[in-house]
């Protein structure tokens, strides 16, 4: 099943929440809508579900225009951030609800509920009420209710955001396996770039209602289309240094690096923390810097550095130790650097 957004705009009053969005999602894809809060990703999902009207533009499912199709006739399943389990029904009744409204007979309903419950390992919870369940269990029930009727696509609105960190990572993996197993097109909304990177076959990065880039996680990371995408994806964030290029040398008030680039007056150099090497001894071409602070993460150390009035972050091995204000030297892997036009932030 393919989903196509064509110049879709959504306004609430004078505010454009989604602005001229065009997106084509292939059959069986796992697409993540990624962006900070207020970027229109949830609104986009809700328009697809039919919970919000489309101000202008068209949405197609398998070439059928669905703008005016009511929610209940779109045959999509949605997992809500709050899980939205029906509190007065047992877990079994919750899962069976989509089948009940489709008037499936009782034995068929029971068979399918049991099958899905077994798949998600929640058979023992079927007689309980939602309030007796933990967050992780509720999450599974919400998933079960979505899966039970084999819809055309799954829509997920930050389904893992209410879980604690450990459970989130575990469920993330399970979601990925589940989607692989079912092969159903899935659209997943999150502000967590780690979820986007791990789950998606393609990521759509949004900012203030506009699509910034729609590509595979690897390309989003390695070839960001603009400064916003570069900054939003990756943790810790990419470093940005404003400067200019003169005679194939990037020049900033305290940094000079040779680059194979045409001359430009205003340019931003972007470099990820893992592409900056921190040296304790001076080396030819290395840039002197001082340690602002270090954060030991266990498997590695984040080194925050001052270079003149530039603040940079570098990743160093776990053994790296340095006191505040220690003099160090930096070596940048300039082949991995990105250049953005300083005004618009577009990659050049």
């Amino acid at each position: 099943m393919t989903i196509r957004f064509q110049n879709v705009t959504k306004s609430f009053g004078d505010t454009r929440v989604v602005d001229d969005l065009s997106l084509e999602i292939e059959h069986g894809e796992f697409v993540v809508l990624l962006g900070p809060s207020g970027c229109g990703k949830t609104t986009t999902l809700r328009m697809l579900a039919g919970l919000e009207t489309v101000t202008s533009g068209d949405i197609y499912i398998d070439d059928e225009r669905i703008n005016d199709v009511q929610t209940q006739h779109r045959d999509l399943a949605m997992v809500f951030q709050s899980y939205a389990l029906y509190p007065h029904m047992t877990i079994a009744e919750n899962i069976a609800y989509p089948l009940r409204v489709r008037k499936l007979d009782k034995t068929e309903r029971t068979t399918r509920v049991n099958k899905v419950a077994a798949m998600l390992e929640i058979e023992s919870l079927l007689d309980r009420k939602p309030r007796q369940l933990s967050g992780g269990e509720r999450q599974r029930v919400a998933l079960a209710r979505a899966i039970v009727r084999e819809p055309r696509a799954y829509l997920m609105d930050e389904p893992l955001s209410n879980l604690d960190a450990r459970l989130r990572v575990q469920m993330r993996g399970e979601l990925k396996r589940l989607q692989h197993q079912l092969g159903t097109t899935t659209i997943y909304v999150t502000h967590d770039q780690a979820e986007a990177m791990t789950l998606a076959s393609r990521v759509a990065v949004m900012k203030r209602g506009r699509l910034q880039q729609f590509d595979t996680p690897l390309n989003i990371y390695n070839r960001p289309a603009n400064r916003f995408v570069a900054e939003f994806v990756g943790s810790p964030s990419m470093n940005f240094i404003d400067g200019k290029i003169e005679n194939a040398v990037f020049v900033n008030n305290s940094i000079k690096i040779r680059v194979q680039r045409p001359d430009t007056n205003q340019v931003t150099l972007g470099i990820r923390p893992e592409h900056i090497q921190v040296l304790t001894e001076p080396q030819d071409g290395a840039i002197p810097a001082s340690v602002y602070v270090t954060e030991l993460m266990g498997n590695e150390t984040f080194v925050f550095l001052s270079v003149g009035n530039n603040k940079l972050i570098a990743r160093a091995p776990a053994e790296f130790r340095a006191d505040f204000e220690t003099q160090v030297w930096l070596r940048m892997n300039i082949e991995k650097a990105h250049f953005f036009d300083s005004e618009m932030g577009l990659a050049i």
Partner: peptide
């Protein structure tokens, strides 16, 4: 009553009245 619950019911295939 949280709106999510009704919206979930709609997505699950129920009508407004249902």
């Amino acid at each position: 009553v949280p709106r999510d619950l009704e919206e979930a019911a709609l997505v699950d295939g129920d009508s407004r009245l249902g």
